[in-house]
């Protein structure tokens, strides 16, 4: 479903992503783990066709980012780390707007928005402007926004950043639900706990390169460490 093939994104001599290849199948949750500046966000932006790869390619369901960026965007739900919401719109207005942009037919739009409002517990603040919402409330609206067109693939850039445990829990539950519905989910993070908790497979990114890939358990075995955090440190430490 989601595939990177030797994707490189360079800025002058600096390679932010260097020959990244990986696959995420439908119904699979893949965590991209890496320290700050490892190239996680750049890789996800290339996949979302927001950045043009310097070489190599990425595709979603067979549509390549360079050849058919609009088709790629139709097939993905992208949650950016910045959690961008329009402060002067209410959650319902915001969801309707993105629904229209994603081509959700007017006849289905209201039903879809109502459903998302219910699923993510947005009812109580659905008429408040986004600018007045708490961080947790904003994140719930953001996730609902990424799902408004019910895409087969989800790309989540640090989805739990800045959230408390309760709000984080909403996101975890949502990822599990979407996996059960057969979606391919690629998310970036640097929190070991959520990787162990959610990911079927994990790829460790360091200085733009994929230095290890497998299940959490296999990475621990590979590095001879007793926890994922130690395994991660060992892998990243080897590189630096």
């Amino acid at each position: 479903m989601i595939e990177f093939q030797a994707l490189t994104k360079a800025y002058g001599r600096l390679k932010a992503v260097d020959g990244l290849s990986l696959r995420v199948e439908p119904g699979e949750v893949y965590a991209l783990l890496g320290p700050n500046g490892a190239g996680k966000t750049t890789a996800l932006r290339c996949l979302a066709s927001l950045l043009t790869p310097t070489s190599g390619t990425a595709s979603v369901g067979g549509a390549a980012v360079y050849d058919d960026p609009l088709e790629v965007r139709r097939r993905i739900g992208f949650l950016s780390a910045s959690m961008g919401l329009y402060d002067r719109l209410t959650p319902v207005e915001l969801l309707s707007y993105f629904g229209r942009l994603h081509g959700v037919p007017d006849s289905d739009l209201e039903r879809r928005v109502t459903e998302l409002v219910r699923v993510f517990g947005i009812e109580e603040f659905s008429d408040q402007r986004c600018g007045t919402l708490s961080t947790g409330q904003r994140q719930r609206v953001s996730v609902a926004r990424a799902l408004v067109h019910d895409p087969p693939a989800l790309i989540l850039d640090e989805p739990t950043m800045g959230l408390d445990v309760l709000s984080g829990e909403v996101i975890y539950r949502f990822i599990e639900d979407e996996r059960a519905r057969g979606k391919a989910i690629l998310f970036s993070t640097h929190q070991m706990a959520e990787v162990e908790f959610l990911a079927d497979r994990v790829g460790v990114l360091s200085a733009g390169r994929l230095v290890a890939e497998g299940t959490s358990a296999s990475l621990m075995v590979q590095t001879g460490q007793s926890s994922l955090a130690r395994a991660f440190l060992a892998l990243v430490g080897e590189r630096t």
Binding site: R45, L70, E71, R73, S80, S82, G84, L101, G103, S142
Partner: peptide
């Protein structure tokens, strides 16, 4: 960023 991930 969110706006530009829309297929338009």
């Amino acid at each position: 960023e969110a706006l530009l991930t829309a297929p338009v």
